[in-house]
């Protein structure tokens, strides 16, 4: 190359009084310093991140360890635990199905409320609502999402159940029942379904809607046949997360669904869910290392496994959804 021709000619220019740079000492200065303070801080911050790992390990370890103790109790074995339809520790019956069944029933009722209403509300907010209506309705849903679950439990027991008993007759509906708990749980979960679905719907590009309108589709046809299908995996992710939330919900069922395991498919009868059982047993003064105490951990492990699986599935789906549109 011909760059040889412009060798510097200005080297001898005087250094101005302000000019403090350009001393040969600088070259040594370029060398890395240890900066122990920075290192220490980074180490501390990494530790902060790692606390979450320790939490998970703690959960898995403690649940696993105590569950193992539970299954070592002579009356208990894994097969019976998973298939037995009676939970009566006093006579040595440890079948978890009544608890699981009650959990499924409250969850099912909750989902029958939360999923259709949540999705419909999401469609309204993302496709129809004026900014003003949105600005009013969104905070309402946020407040609903922020109300403590014990308050919902109170609501289920003192309002929803009496209401059901008035409508359907107090012979049909027991004072504690899974239907009322599920109904109120559905209201509690509605905001979650709505906001996650709305995010998914909003992520669908405008161009897709415009394409549909351009071919003469109405707003409803566009929403239901173009936008919703395009956002489907995001919406399903919301649904799955809602199920996980319902399975893990404690206070509503502890107050309104009934205490005492009961293997029934009648939603108007009392039945205890997994979470309700854990809350009841631990609320009393139960001695350490009794089968009762250990059973909390076995059921907790089951609960943890179910919700974790649902959460992971939900995250996978929504990650796939994001890949498509972002």
């Amino acid at each position: 190359m011909e760059q040889e021709m412009f060798r510097p000619t200005q080297q001898t220019q005087a250094i101005s009084p302000f000019d403090v740079h350009a001393s040969s000492a600088l070259i040594a200065n370029l060398r890395k310093r240890p900066r122990w303070g920075e290192r220490f801080i980074q180490g501390f911050l990494f530790f902060c991140g790692a606390v979450s790992i320790l939490t998970t390990l703690g959960i898995v370890f403690e649940l696993g360890k105590e569950s193992l103790l539970f299954f070592q109790t002579p009356e208990v074995n894994l097969i019976e635990f998973l298939t037995g339809t009676k939970w009566q520790p006093t006579i040595g019956e440890f079948g978890v199905l009544p608890l699981v069944n009650a959990t499924l029933m409250t969850t099912l009722v909750a989902m029958l409320v939360a999923l259709p209403l949540g999705l419909a509300a999401a469609i309204y907010l993302s496709e129809y609502a004026s900014p003003k209506a949105r600005g009013f309705l969104k905070p309402i849903l946020e407040i609903l999402a922020g109300i403590p679950t014990v308050v919902y439990g109170y609501f289920a027991l003192t309002f929803m159940t009496p209401l059901l008993r008035t409508i359907l007759g107090s012979e049909t509906v027991q004072i504690y029942n899974t239907f009322s708990a599920g109904l109120v749980m559905g209201i509690m979960i509605l905001p979650l379904v709505c906001s996650m679905s709305e995010d998914a719907l909003n992520a669908v590009p405008r161009a897709l809607r415009e394409a549909a309108y351009g071919m003469g589709a109405t707003k409803l046809e566009t929403a239901l046949q173009v936008v919703v299908p395009a956002a489907l995996s995001g919406i399903i992710a919301a649904f799955i997360l809602a199920i996980s939330r319902a399975v893990g919900e404690t206070m509503i069922v502890a107050l309104a669904a009934g205490s005492g395991p009961n293997f029934t498919f009648n939603p108007f009868k009392a039945a205890e869910t997994m979470t309700g059982y854990i809350a009841r047993i631990s609320g009393g003064d139960v001695g350490y290392d009794t089968p009762d105490y250990n059973s909390i951990f076995a059921i907790g492990l089951l609960l943890f496994t179910i919700t974790l699986a649902l959460n992971i599935l939900s995250r996978k789906l929504s990650a796939r959804f994001r890949e498509v549109y972002e």
């Binding site: 600088l26 070259i27 370029l30 060398r31 890395k32 310093r33």
Partner: peptide, 12 residues
């Protein structure tokens, strides 16, 4: 830069 490669591992 001043005869030193600023991408040397020992440069800060």
């Amino acid at each position: 830069f001043h005869g030193k490669n600023i991408y040397d591992p020992d440069v800060d």
